[in-house]
Design a binder for these strands. Sequence first.
DNA 1: TTAGCCGGTTA
DNA 2: TAACCG
DNA 3: CTAA
Length: 735
Amino acid sequence: MFDFSPDDKKKFYEDLENLDKTDSEREDEGHLESIRLLRGSPTHLSTSRGSFTGRRVARTLTAFDQNAHRAISRESSSRHFPLSLIRSQSEPQPMQPQISLSHPREKSVSFRHLGLKKSASSSSLSSREMAPASKSIHEKGKGKKRSRPTQEIQLAQIFQGLVFFFVPNNTHNNARRMRIELAQKRGAIWAKEWSTAQITHVIADKDVKYAWLLSHLNLTEIPSNISVVSEHFIPDSIAAGLQDPARPRYRIEGQVVQPPNRTAVELPAESDRSLQVKPAKKDVSLTGPDTQSTVVASSIGTAVLHDALNDSTRASKSNRNQAQYNDELAQVIKETKPFAHLPLSDESDDAGADQPDDLDHEEGPPRKAPRLDIASEASVDKWQKSFQCMHKNEGNLERQNPNAYTIGILSEMAQYYDNGHDDFRLMSYRRAVASLQKCDTLITTKDQALKLGRVGPSIAEKIEEIVTTKGLRKLENAKSDPREVAIQLFLRVYGCGKALAEEWYAKGYRTLEDLEKEKLTSNQRIGVDHYEDFNTRIPRAEVEAHGKVVMDALEVVAPGYKATIMGSYRRGTKDCGDIDMLITKENTAVETVATVVFEQLVPYLTETGFLVASLATPHANGGTKWHGASLLPASSLPSGSKPLWRRIDFLVVPESEMGAALLYFTGDDIFNRSMRLLASKKKMRLNQRGLYKDVIRGPNRERLTEGTLVEGKSEQGIFEALGVPYRPPHHRICG
DNA sequence: TTAGCCGGTTA
DNA sequence: TAACCG
DNA sequence: CTAA
Ligand SMILES: O=c1ccn([C@H]2C[C@H](O)[C@@H](COP(=O)(O)OP(=O)(O)OP(=O)(O)O)O2)c(=O)[nH]1
Ligand SMILES: [Mg+2]
């Protein structure tokens, strides 16, 4: 009765084996010398408060400036589908949608071991080993640290061969994350990108409306071979066997009821064209009108065939199952989140938060025409004001800020959104903190906070909570959530981002030592080995010392070359995350400067013992940057103290691009993004090399033409050309 | 309801 | 190409 | 999370 492909079967047994092993047994190779993470000398991990900067905010989406984008014109007809899921037909397609029966299985399934994560968007099912799902997740107060692995693998693979797409398709919400993980554990594949060809089910959150879903997916219609179901589908199926997607219970709001016999093959003409071939998705046409009826297994394993439109017979029973399941899920959630209220990312928690979540839709309604001729100063002024870069962002660096405590807490809070959760929120927190920083009166109430600007209802409330209760519940929750703690830990290893951190967590890793079981990339290796060093901020004076070493070396190796310390140092912060150096020489081509720097300076400093690791070396034609690590000579320090490994970056710049490079390399990142967005609103483009005009952009603000250079040499010139009053470096602290 | 910088390197 | 970094 |  089971329909396993050979691959699946093989994997199943591999998983079985893995699950029985203990961690130590599983260790692939006898990584002999266990790397000592804690060095002899006591270094402190100073998560410096005042000048908080998170890890770099994640790329795609980030919050900041207001939208002047209403002004930008757009193609409303744009239709983009991520192609990443498209695969060649030759690859095995593990799909047997309609027929899978649930295994007969234990009544009481353990939900404890979540965390297996199939790499869904990667094409092959069998690709990755599954981790030992042997760690219990949260054992708040309960004695059992480790559950018995063997009994936990008896999960019926009821979703085997099914490909789920969730809406929203992320794990920001704990309940949804739970559903996704549960589904995966039972054989489902989580499609991270939309793919008409592969996805079998769309699982929508209960509050998602059908119309919103369509626009979210950029579809006019859901292909008939894909079932749209509400979130209940997952728990129900787990509790009572694979459910019929057509049940009214799984209908989402605003969904039209499909007639029982529809022609199966119609695919959305438009959307699929770009996706060319697809492995003719399990002949939907062959299954005919019965496509939507499905075999449903009762909880004792007896299969019953139900007519799609007639599920009344089963109603009461599945309700019971449903209830039972809900209990189980509720329990999981409770175990996972000891403080179920105020979870780190709960959609219902925060004001107007993320129903639509992130996710780049294409466009909604067609935009109004641009109307921004740069000439019309008056009108320009208005919308421009909303950009951060238009304002003085003085740090209030010196004197003690009355809001220091609040700032500290909020900054800490922001850390937890760093990469892991919402990049939007992270940016908002940073901006709010910056607002507080330049405020010199103590903020105690919501209303005061709201007046600051860049502080909205949500953070305002938190500020009030902080000053009145001296704490922030949400932060305490995060801190006491082992998942958050572990993810945060991993995110701080250089070379580990959100994806890997979650993968590691899912594999049961909780400490840096656990990572020794993993094959790390060379950069990650360094990141782990020098975890503490890299996460320790660098006092200004030490930054200068590193800078001096480089400058002195240049004197020797390449006289006439000039090095300048950039980044947070140039902004005047009292400590820095790394050392950023710009290297240039007058009247000299970049290629020349680059050659000298990368083939002479770097090797020289490496021999000296100053440069101790290289993390990224120029690769592209005209590569201009080098990332690595440096170490001050012990002789230069007070005796007894050991130098720390520091992150150091070189950027090679020709004279003609000095202005843009200064601008870029001075930051901060939020300021830069603000400037760049402003540029794009003016049909221009700003990068580390210059400001360009007449840039043509496509649908997603995607750049279609390079544009022509306006200014690159003078930093001030760029401000002028953009119509932004010049801001000295210390006024560019926006986050 | 919507959008949120831009580019280079690694594997 | 996706993930990561600045 | 924020501002438009
Ligand atoms: O996403 C980013 C990251 C960095 N930068 C620029 C601005 C930043 O100032 C400079 C150097 O980056 P770094 O990560 O060193 O930031 P920093 O401002 O120097 O702060 P830190 O003290 O953490 O080094 O690169 C951006 O434009 N966008
Ligand atoms: Mg820096």
